[in-house]
Amino acid sequence: MTRITVDVNDEWLEAARQELGTTTKVATINAALEAFARRRKAAEILAAFDSVEMDFEGSADAWRYGGGRDLSRLAEDAGVADAA
């Protein structure tokens, strides 16, 4: 972990603390950095999906009744007393 001294805008820090639900300055800054890192990673994942050509023709039929998975006993298998 890196230890730094930095001047931050108090209003922005307080706004971030309220938004993130953190209780300390350190926790707020770390949570904000983590949120941006996750956002960047999500963007990279989406870009990877966008870069691959996918053919979904006929996929809707595979998930309708009679195609794909049989979910008719889902509630029973889960032990639900009244699935209706």
Results as ranks from 00 to 15, higher is better:
77 D>Q: 15
13 L>F: 02
30 N>Q: 12
31 A>G: 03
62 A>Y: 01
5 T>Q: 14
47 A>K: 09
50 D>A: 07
2 T>D: 10
33 L>S: 00
46 L>G: 06
65 Y>Q: 15
26 V>A: 12
76 E>T: 08
7 D>F: 14
54 M>C: 15
68 G>M: 04
18 Q>G: 13
4 I>N: 08
65 Y>T: 15
69 R>D: 10
61 D>I: 04
82 D>W: 02
42 A>I: 11
1 M>H: 00
38 R>N: 11
78 A>C: 12
5 T>P: 02
5 T>W: 13
64 R>D: 03
37 A>C: 02
55 D>P: 00
74 L>Q: 00
37 A>F: 05
59 S>C: 15
58 G>P: 00
25 K>Q: 09
63 W>S: 15
24 T>H: 07
54 M>Q: 15
53 E>Y: 10
22 T>M: 01
23 T>P: 04
44 E>G: 06
71 L>P: 01
67 G>W: 06
41 K>D: 14
55 D>C: 03
19 E>F: 06
7 D>P: 11
4 I>E: 10
58 G>Q: 03
74 L>W: 00
49 F>A: 12
16 A>C: 13
70 D>T: 09
31 A>Y: 01
25 K>G: 11
35 A>W: 06
20 L>I: 05
61 D>Q: 09
70 D>Q: 10
73 R>W: 02
16 A>G: 06
1 M>D: 01
61 D>M: 05
75 A>C: 08
17 R>T: 02
61 D>W: 00
71 L>M: 11
7 D>M: 14
15 A>G: 08
75 A>V: 06
56 F>H: 02
8 V>H: 04
17 R>D: 03
23 T>E: 12
60 A>D: 09
55 D>V: 07
55 D>Y: 03
10 D>I: 14
67 G>L: 12
9 N>M: 06
66 G>S: 03
12 W>S: 12
61 D>H: 02
82 D>A: 10
52 V>G: 02
41 K>W: 15
29 I>N: 00
6 V>E: 06
14 E>M: 07
74 L>H: 00
24 T>V: 11
44 E>H: 05
46 L>D: 12
51 S>I: 01
27 A>K: 14
3 R>T: 09
48 A>P: 05
59 S>V: 15
18 Q>D: 12
68 G>N: 03
31 A>F: 00
14 E>R: 14
78 A>N: 07
74 L>Y: 05
62 A>K: 08
34 E>K: 14
68 G>A: 09
36 F>T: 11
3 R>G: 05
55 D>H: 01
59 S>Q: 15
76 E>D: 13
81 A>E: 10
72 S>W: 08
56 F>D: 02
78 A>V: 08
